[in-house]
Amino acid sequence: MDTDLIIVSGIVILMLSIPSAVSAFAEGRGPWVALVVVILGFAVVGYGWKHHPVEMTLAEVPHTIYRVLARVIP
């Protein structure tokens, strides 16, 4: 699997944790599921970042997202 795709998948997982956290706070319960999803998202992004063939900087992340979107959208 391509590391760009892994990084973007981790970012999507991180974004999916936001509604879960908001929902938990609105209902007055602890955001445990959101916390687990955040940890999973950071682990996926970290794995993709570490195994990327070229050293990546934070400024290259938008370009990575655009490359993955360009492959997905014909």
Rank of each mutant, 00 (worst) to 15 (best):
K50Y: 07
P62I: 06
I6L: 09
V61H: 00
V38I: 15
I39Y: 04
V33C: 05
S20G: 02
L58N: 01
A43G: 08
V68S: 11
V12Q: 06
T64P: 02
A59S: 11
L40V: 14
G10K: 09
V54N: 12
L14D: 07
T3G: 00
W32H: 15
D4P: 02
V8M: 10
V38F: 09
L69I: 14
E60C: 00
V37G: 04
P19K: 04
T3V: 03
H52N: 11
F25K: 14
K50P: 00
S20H: 03
L40Q: 04
L35M: 12
A21W: 00
V36S: 15
S20D: 10
I13M: 07
V72H: 05
E60K: 08
D4C: 05
D4H: 11
H52R: 07
I13P: 00
G48F: 12
H63D: 14
V45N: 05
P31M: 12
V45S: 07
G30N: 13
P74V: 11
L16F: 13
W49N: 01
V37C: 09
A70R: 11
S17H: 02
G30T: 13
L16S: 12
A26P: 00
A26S: 15
G41Q: 06
R71W: 13
V22D: 10
V38G: 07
E55Y: 01
A34Q: 03
M1P: 01
E27V: 10
T57E: 11
A26G: 10
F42C: 12
G30C: 06
V38A: 12
G48H: 10
E60M: 09
I6S: 02
I6W: 02
S23I: 06
V22Y: 13
F42R: 04
V37P: 05
E60Q: 14
E55T: 08
S23L: 09
V72D: 03
I6P: 01
T64H: 00
V38T: 14
I6G: 00
Y66P: 02
M15R: 03
D4E: 14
A70T: 09
L69P: 06
L5S: 08
V72L: 15
V12I: 15
L40R: 01
V44D: 01
G28R: 15
I73S: 10
S17C: 05
A26Y: 09
V37K: 11
T57S: 15
I7C: 05
M15T: 04
A21S: 02
T64V: 14
A21T: 01
P31G: 15
I13S: 03
V45G: 07
P19H: 06
T3H: 08
